[in-house]
Design a binder for these strands. Structure first.
Length: 155
DNA sequence: GCCAACGTTGGC
DNA sequence: GCCAACGTTGGC
């Protein structure tokens, strides 16, 4: 069974264009337990992902990606030179996990205000006030609606 | 740049 | 285990 997710990235840190250029990437730097648990326990190979650009004007969904490797230790937590270094992480207890994703399809930019304006997306976690989770669930229905808004009819 | 919302830390 | 203080996220 395929599940659907949304992953946030600040475009000046790691953008959709960079993902396309790289072909795939490891989703390092998640330091929130809820987001980690989703990646560790729920994300499976082939799951679809809305790639969301946060902290930019306007915030928007930029593309569709896919999980191409399931959870494994986020090695940046054990790299003292990484800004994501966590002294509590060790080989025995890596503490933080990541998945790999790869691009599937570019979307016409879907701005947050347009998502908010679409009543069919009522209840989407992303649109809840104060929602900060960087990895979050999306229902299949909402996922398909967003794809349609971005010019992709069926994925 | 502001600040509301939320998560984490650590003293007690 | 509570909760105040603090740090971060991210829309605006």
């Amino acid at each position: 069974m395929v599940n659907y997710w949304l992953m946030k990235s600040e475009p000046h840190v790691y953008s959709w264009a960079q993902l396309v250029k790289d072909g795939s990437t490891h989703w390092d730097g998640v330091r929130n337990y809820q987001a980690r648990n989703i990646m560790r326990d729920e994300m499976a190979l082939g799951d679809k992902v809305l790639f969301y650009h946060s902290n930019c004007k306007p915030p928007h969904v930029a593309g569709i990606a896919r999980v191409c490797r399931e959870a494994y230790p986020d090695f940046t937590a054990q790299d003292i030179y990484s800004k994501y270094f966590d002294p509590r992480a060790s080989p025995d207890n890596p503490r933080w996990m990541m998945v790999d994703i790869e691009p599937v399809s570019e979307l016409e930019t879907i701005r947050l205000p347009d998502l908010r304006a679409n009543g069919a997306l009522d209840g989407m976690p992303l649109l809840r006030k104060g929602q900060r989770l960087s990895v979050q669930s999306v229902s299949e229905e909402h996922f398909q609606i967003v794809c349609a808004m971005g010019g992709i009819s069926k994925i």
